[in-house]
Each structure stands twice: as C-alpha cells, then as structure tokens.
Amino acid sequence: MRGNDAGEQAEGGAEGPWARRMREKLVAEFNPSELAIVDESEGHRGHGGYREGGETHFRVHVRSAAFDGKSRVQRQRMVMSLLKPEMEARVHALSLSLAGEAGP
C-alpha cells in the first residue's frame, strides 16, 4: 500500500490543493490545449507573501483558443478575475504566460 501511495504522489507531481483548485477552474473556463502550474513558493521563502507550506507563488502557463484576438492585458485580466478568490485567500503572486492557438 505504501509503495502505491508514493507512486501515485510522484505521478501527480505532488500538486497541492490550491494548485489543483486553480487547475480545475482553468480547465473548466478555458479548455486549454496546454496547461502547466508550477509552485515556485520555495524561491520566495522569507519574502513578502510567503507562507509555510508554500502554494503562495505560482508560475502558470495556459494555451487556449479563448485568448485568440485578445491583448496581453486582456488575457491576464481574464485569468486574474477567474482566480480572484484564490488570490484573496492564499495565492500571493501568479506569474502568467498566456498564449492563444492562432499566434504566440
């Protein structure tokens, strides 16, 4: 049983509950063809917004047709407004890379 647990965790990348929540919301809203969520909180240990347990600083990449024809500012606003509850409750910083299907 222990072996199985460890295996599952390694496979899932040990994503925390906040990352999982954001992933679910991003998938539901944007139906992305690419999605990556990286917890970079440890790099911010001791800096503003860091909390024990991490999940405060994330790097997020999304590629979706929903971003086609939208400016960089519009794309970020779409994601920031979707994840506003998470930003208010826990997440201190999101570093966003948002791409459309048609262009960069």
């Binding site: 960089r72 500012v73 970020q76 606003r77 506003k84 999101l94």
Partner: peptide, 20 residues
C-alpha cells in the same frame, strides 16, 4: 483594474505588469 504591482504606464496608458 489590475490586481498586482508593479504596473507600467507609458504616455498615460497602462502597459502591463511584470510578466507582460
């Protein structure tokens, strides 16, 4: 209408934050 700092303005227009 932007939730984070820093914010850059050029000629009175909002350009974006750190990622942009």
């Amino acid at each position: 209408d932007w939730p984070t700092i820093p914010q850059l303005y050029v000629k009175g227009e909002f350009v974006g934050g750190c990622d942009i």
